[in-house]
Design a protein around this nucleic acid. Structure first.
Lengths: 289, 289
DNA sequence: TAAAAATACTCCATAGGTATTTTAT
DNA sequence: ATAAAATACCTATGGAGTATTTTTA
């Protein structure tokens, strides 16, 4: 008979790729975890992990099953939280994931606002790229994620918060007036590195399918490059509003302005759905006001 | 630490409302199940069940948690099936739920057709009302459900199969020509009893919010009543096509014809998604051809 | 007072720990 | 040669069984 323990261990193993470390993460010894994984493989009659000198790497089936196991353990977490919520001792802590291109601009206004409106809420924030955030959200490590839409996927629901238009940043020494984003000089366009959603969104706005130039690792770096005259880039309005460097010229595109929609996502089964919707309401009201 | 066993027992208890019978269903003794439920209550710190002379009835929290537990255990079942599917020994058995107002008309053509097209499929059919079917689907007791849309809900996805128009059945002795369904004489309208989706759909088509007349328990009974001149009713075309009784006059409504859309639903996490989509494709092609 | 669930207890399966061996690079 | 995982073996926990008591309608 399959047990939750086996699923938890599988998730840990997938996470760490190493029996010893996975075991440590579960507060058990390595043989204990090894045995349970072995047991799981026997029960399912599927090899889940390839053992090797450099730790454990999951087979294709192992990965697929680990993903499902993650969803299941997250579901169990929600089950427990739900019970806690019901008995009145609602979990005050809410762990929120935000992408780096929003966090520094949204949080300074958002945190005090939420703190005042929902004083019995202890917000914890984590900041990384969309992909990682969504994995962690699905695994129940985060309660909600704020990032650019679309975010909905299996078991995850997303709600729009506000639109964030893209502006054009160019060197003041050689300024460029924003017109049709599709007519921007590709060879001067600077972007973030692969994996940042901002890169994909900017490419989308410019109707470029691929650009093989080097990618910066942060928006700040990108703006430094623009300031020093190395090229132009697209900046979300939230970020553009805070540019103080006189060497950067910011210009608005004519309508229809290219933009991304920022939204918030959470597990559809989350027991905090009500509170999360409340937060969505407050943020989107705050944004339009 | 929460265990799957506890969730399974909770589901069984919710199902049977009786510790002894729930235990029997789990192939354990009554004290074993009692202890686990007690343990679960202690862990969650929530009373789940009210013990009484007439068995066990779940508290409000108990019901809510049992519903979640059902979804979780279904997820675990899917996890196991997924592994089986992966290792090639795909489950051939597929348990399909169909509502009574479709089954007798769809199955005779559908079953041979599917049998021929997918010979490695062993279909088992269960026939009850939509509500029961959807509960069983969510609990993993069924693999798919064919009923009138909308069926989508949390964790369940649904696809349209075909439209099924409503026709008007009236006594041949006193026939009524189908015109606007909203103009039908309410006092002559006969319907199924509460809980049958056909009743709600018919009421919807006629734009009636409520009708306090007695309800028949099956479409056949309903048609007998019409045949004997007791009133009129709406019949799905599938059923109407098979009416042989000369005492019943069937007439088609002018466009836009009132209709219901028949669809198929399954758990979004089902490992059989591919095969189920294949079935949807075959049925909807068969319907339009 | 009788059906249903809880308790008392005993037993055994199994998860986990420590020590050690095997494996793969 | 050495890190990593498997194996061997022991212990202890806890889940399940039988027998019995308590509860409640």
């Amino acid at each position: 008979m399959l047990t939750l323990r086996q699923l938890r261990y599988l998730v840990a193993l997938a996470e760490h790729g190493h029996f010893g470390r996975a075991a440590a993460a579960c507060n058990v010894t390595q043989p204990a975890l090894s045995m349970q994984i072995k047991e799981l493989e026997a029960e399912l009659d599927v090899p889940l992990v390839e053992r090797g000198r450099h730790g454990a790497i999951l087979t294709e089936e192992g990965e697929a099953l680990a993903a499902r196991a993650r969803a299941l353990t997250a579901g169990v977490k929600d089950f427990e939280d739900f019970a806690r919520e019901r008995r009145g001792v609602q979990a005050r802590r809410l762990i929120l994931g935000i992408i780096p291109s929003i966090a520094p601009y949204l949080l300074p206004t958002l945190l005090p606002h939420l703190q005042a409106a929902l004083p019995d809420l202890e917000l914890k924030v984590r900041e990384t790229q969309t992909h990682t955030l969504m994995t962690e959200l699905a695994a129940g490590e985060l309660d909600a994620v704020i990032a650019a839409l679309p975010l909905a996927q299996d078991g995850i629901e997303a709600h729009a918060l506000f639109d964030d238009p893209f502006l054009l940043a160019s060197p003041s020494a050689d300024p460029l007036q924003a017109k049709d984003p599709r007519d921007l000089p590709h060879d001067r366009l600077l972007l973030l590195e692969e994996g940042h959603c901002l890169r994909e969104q900017a490419l989308g706005a410019c109707a470029i399918s691929d650009l093989s130039t080097f990618g910066a690792t942060s928006l700040t770096t990108l703006l430094h490059l623009v300031a020093s005259g190395q090229g132009i880039t697209l900046v979300p309005k939230m970020a553009a509003d805070q540019i103080a460097d006189p060497r950067i010229a910011v210009s608005r595109f004519p309508d229809p302005q290219p933009h991304r929609t920022i939204g918030m996502a959470w597990r559809a089964a989350s027991p905090r759905t009500r509170k999360l919707k409340e937060i969505v309401r407050r943020i989107s009201e705050g944004a339009t006001a």
